[in-house]
Simulated assay, not measured.
Amino acid sequence: MPTNFRRRTLAPQPVALVGFDLKGGVELSAYASRLTSLATSRDECLDLLADLITVMGARMLTCRRMGVRDIWQLPDASRPIPVVVLVDEIAELFLTADKAEKDQVTRTATALLRIAQLGRAFGIHLVLSGQRIGSDLGPGVTALRAQIGGRVCHRVNDPETAVMTLGDLDPDALVAARSIPPELPGVAVITGNDGRWYRARSGYVSTTAAEQAADAFAHMAPSWGQVAASGLAHELSGGGSPQLAA
C-alpha cells in the first residue's frame, strides 16, 4: 500500500472502527472486515450505543483514578484503543413511523448526544454523514449539531441542509456551499473547532479501493472485547498494550 495512502486513511491506524448503517448494511458491510462492529437495525444501533456508553464510562473512571483529564495523558500501557464511530445517513436514525420508533429515536438521540459531549476525551470520536440533515428531523439533530465542531458540506440542492450543517457558524459559509458548481465534484466548505470556514477539495476514492483497503488492513481490527478491556485491564494488571486481532 502506498505511503501517502496510509497517511490519508483510517484503515491502517491502530483504532477500532464502528459502523451504523440503517440501509440494511448495504453501504458499510463492504468494509466489514475492518470494522469492529456494525449495526444495521434500530435495535442493533441502540445496543451498540449502549455498549459505547459503557466503554466511555469505564474509561472515564480510569482517567479519574489515574488523575488525568483524557486518555492521551495516560501511560502508553494504560491507554485504551481509540474508537471512531461512522454513521452513514444520520437522518435514518431520526426518522419515525410510529410511536415505538419515536421512543427508539429519543433513546438514540440521547445516546449520540452523550457520546458527542463526552466521548472525545475518552477516545471515542463521531463521524456523522448524510445527504439530508434538516431541522425537521427534530431537536435531537439540532442539539447534536451543536456538539460537532468539524463540519464538511459538499454541494447541496436544498438550502435547509446547508443551514442545518453550517447555519450556526458564518452566513458567508452558507453562500459558499450553495454556490459550488456541479462541475467541481469533491469541493466542499469545511470548518474546524475555531469556527472558521474554508473551501477544500477531497480526493476521489473508489468503492473498489476502499474495499481493498478494508481487506488489506483487516488484521488491524480489534475485537469488541479488546476495545472494552483496553486500558481498564492494564490499570489492574500492569500488563503491556493489547495486540490487535489478527
Rank of each mutant, 00 (worst) to 15 (best):
M1E: 12
P2H: 13
R6H: 11
R7D: 14
T9H: 12
P12V: 04
V18L: 06
L22Q: 05
G24P: 05
G24E: 04
E27K: 07
A30C: 11
A30H: 14
Y31C: 10
L35Y: 07
T36G: 06
T40N: 14
S41Y: 10
L48W: 10
L52G: 12
M56I: 12
R59E: 00
L61C: 09
R69F: 02
I71M: 10
I71H: 01
Q73G: 08
P75H: 09
A77I: 00
P80K: 07
V83W: 05
V83A: 11
E89Y: 06
A91H: 05
A91T: 01
L93Y: 02
F94P: 00
T96V: 12
K99S: 15
A100S: 14
E101S: 15
E101F: 09
A111R: 13
R114Q: 13
I115C: 05
A116P: 01
R120K: 06
R120N: 03
F122S: 06
G123D: 05
V127A: 14
V127T: 10
G130C: 04
G130Y: 04
Q131E: 08
G134M: 02
L137M: 11
L137R: 03
G140T: 08
G140W: 02
V141Q: 03
Q147C: 05
R151H: 02
C153K: 02
H154G: 13
V163F: 01
D168Y: 00
P171Q: 04
R178L: 15
S179D: 13
I180W: 02
I180V: 08
P181I: 01
E183A: 09
P185D: 02
G186C: 06
G195F: 00
Y198R: 13
A200N: 05
Y204S: 05
V205A: 11
S206H: 03
S206D: 06
T207H: 14
T207Y: 06
T208F: 10
T208D: 15
E211W: 03
A213R: 04
A216E: 13
F217L: 13
A218D: 09
M220F: 10
A221L: 04
E235K: 02
S237F: 03
G239C: 06
A246W: 14
